[in-house]
Write a protein that binds this DNA or RNA. Sequence first.
DNA 1: TAGGCCATCTGGTCCT
DNA 2: AGGACCAGATGGCCTA
Length: 187
Amino acid sequence: MKSKGKAVKPSRRTWSDPEPELEPDTEPEPGSSEQEGSEASVRIGGSWRGSLRGGDGKRKRGGGRRRRQHGSGTKERSVRRLESNERERTRMHKLNNAFQALREAIPHVNTDKKLSKIETLTLAKNYIKALTTVVVDMSGDCLPAGGVPSEANAAKLLQCYQKHLKDEGEDDLTQYLTHMHSFSQRS
DNA sequence: TAGGCCATCTGGTCCT
DNA sequence: AGGACCAGATGGCCTA
């Protein structure tokens, strides 16, 4: 299993752990010094970076110009940024937890390798499609046309599913399994 | 070393 | 007004 990313990244400095020489209160940021809105450079981890916003035609919903932050001091903005970063971090953690739950819901062969996010989504999509095919197939055999979902029907479907697997194997899952194997072979 | 994947920061926009 | 959401940018880690 890849143990990527999760390890502590000592060189990644967060706003909550600022370096002493970095003083946002006193050091103006080039490009973002409240005068140019189309392009900004910000300082992260001690190095300046420039963003390409405004020049590539993306993210242009609305004005496109960076809004000026009237009436809020640098310190207050810094605090708000910290809070915003924290919220974003927890939001992403929740998202990752959801991805993990999805990974655990999808059967796959190579459990040694953690599915990437894109693999998880692709497998989930194919898995749903495969199961849908099975259900539709079985409901044609086992349920009256236009049958209303009910506990009785669900039980009957389950019986049919088991019979289906016994009689015909898991051919309906072939496509899903194909994708699954392609993923596992790449690891 | 290049490329893939990821976490984090960031600012703009949307929504309540 | 403030939080949620989104996407771009950046840099670290890992594998082929």
